[in-house]
Design a protein around this nucleic acid. Sequence first.
DNA 1: GCTTCATGTAACTTAATTAGTTACGATTTA
DNA 2: TAAATCGTAACTAATTAAGTTACATGAAGC
Lengths: 149, 149
Amino acid sequence: MKRNSRLSSTLHILVHMAEKPEQALTSEQLATFIHTNPVVVRRTIAGLRDAGIVTSSRGHGGGWLLGSAPESISLAEISAALGETLLPFSTEPESPGCLVEQAVIAVLDDFRVAAEKLLAEKLSRITLADLTADFRRRYDLIGVSSHAL
Amino acid sequence: MKRNSRLSSTLHILVHMAEKPEQALTSEQLATFIHTNPVVVRRTIAGLRDAGIVTSSRGHGGGWLLGSAPESISLAEISAALGETLLPFSTEPESPGCLVEQAVIAVLDDFRVAAEKLLAEKLSRITLADLTADFRRRYDLIGVSSHAL
DNA sequence: GCTTCATGTAACTTAATTAGTTACGATTTA
DNA sequence: TAAATCGTAACTAATTAAGTTACATGAAGC
């Protein structure tokens, strides 16, 4: 798992889970999908559990399951549960009292708030189900082309 | 200069430059504004020079000047010249051949492209002149309130 | 010309962040 | 009770970005 790929790695995991809705997948299994190790998986998706997006169970036969239907899980929720910042730049004051900085931060903050709202709206319109549908489309295409060969 | 504050630090510098349009400011002076050192300033705004947003001159009386009027310099250009990514997440494949990953990346990439376009449009509508105007508003307010005391 | 002031830039050091790893306790099932 | 699994703390390693030092280059003033 590379840096800055938490969102895509997590989506990768979640689509796999959506494809096996009845089967609890272990951290170990999920880890192999994204080429990392089980502890990193648990740590990464701990926030999703807190948000109810997934559930986990311990012991024999335990593992991870989606907490609700893929249609009802949006990328906005997932991103928020991961604690990802949508915009990467900071607007923390570093020179308290400097009016120039205050002006810069005010303008930048307005932009940031508006942009985050916009992005969250866009992300809320994409669900896990959209991703699984896209996956199946690709899967079927491969099937067809293999058949055609 | 903190991490992830390159955009706000650079804007801070540029507003100071816009307030002294006739006077070349040295890296040393600019560095004090954002509490860092001259080399970091040069490195940070080197991209702005390449983009024509600022000019630099060496030797006695040298330093940095805006390359054009504050009204014609947008935050979109500045951000681009800094090489800042507007969206922080990666969509690089890590499991070539995995259809699930391909689906995730395709959807995420569509989102990223659309979002970057949107953000760039919003940023292109904010100019350095807007920032200096905001600064002057704050400055005048302080003046008035000091006077009133 | 020589000195001074400034940028340009390479090379190195330091600090911060995040992924990866190890270890072990807690919980569940068989 | 044994095996499987998550939860989590603590540590290590890798990566990135800022900070620093050093020096070459170029411009201005004397």
